[in-house]
Amino acid sequence: MDLNILWFILITVLFTGYFFLEGFDYGVGTLLPFLGKKDNERRVIINTIGPFWDGNEVWLLTAGGAIFAAFPNWYATLFSGFYMALFLMLLALIVRGVAFEFRSKDDRPVWRSLWDWMIFGGSLVPALLWGVAITNLIRGVPIASNMQYVGTFWNLLSPYTLVGGLTTLLIFTLHGALFLTLKTEGEQLEGARRAASLVSILAVPALLLLVTMSYSHTDIFTKSGAGIVFWGALVTLLLACWLLRSGRYAWAFVMNGLTIACSTVAVFWGLFPRVMVSSLNPEWSLTVYNASSSPYTLKIMTIVALTLVPMVLLYQCWTYWIFRQRVTVKHLEY
């Protein structure tokens, strides 16, 4: 296996980690106005992800940095091509990150409701946009022979990619609701459970639609492995729904997490060895070879990543262990 493939796998892992971890952060943020009717409840909801969200967001920064370092042409075409979409995502991430820190620092109702809005919008927008972005990678976008994106923002929006966006939004929201069932108690747990049930009813048909539409809009199913994993995402989602209804929240959370992982892996598997599909000419697609860095850089980065990623995983797991207890209204200090 050459290093180009290894780095493609590593970036798949980074995106999977990012969607799994920030997925529930986005879900919790999206649910904030629906599950938090009183200020105390809002603080509980926010504090369930308080210690984690910033560390989780670094998975995105690392994925971005890894694409830049390992596949500069992918980074250049993707970021300049998906310009407006990424711009919207940046705005969302900016206001959301500040809102977590600022909202409880003043007790005027207007102040808090302003930042709570920011948390809601700043979580919903990326959850939606990531589905749109990822489905565009595999469906294909207008990329010319010189690797330049020649479309506009509107090329990114199509029924297929919007279904993709809706699906990630719903699955991330479900992920957030299930996370809340693990981190809250009493009435709030009950609220989270109800939200999870409701969202799961919508998430199943959305994912089913996405998978079936992928037959005609992508070539994902020409690889049987990728196709099986994609259908596997639907199976784990159904399992999550069943586990949720039988009250096994932790397993439901794990299963829904697997749904996120399977969908991500399916799309990247379907992409390989391409990293961005050109809708104009298959020859013009970016691949792990024509978009990559030099062998020397890939070697250096491999050494760095294989040393540091295990350490990061260790201390991030430790964080979840420290803050394993449920968050309640009685212990609010932040």
Binding site: G64, G65, F68, A69, T297, V304
Partner: peptide, 8 residues
């Protein structure tokens, strides 16, 4: 890209 990725 390398130092940026290492930074992250």
């Amino acid at each position: 890209g390398a130092p940026l990725a290492v930074e992250a």
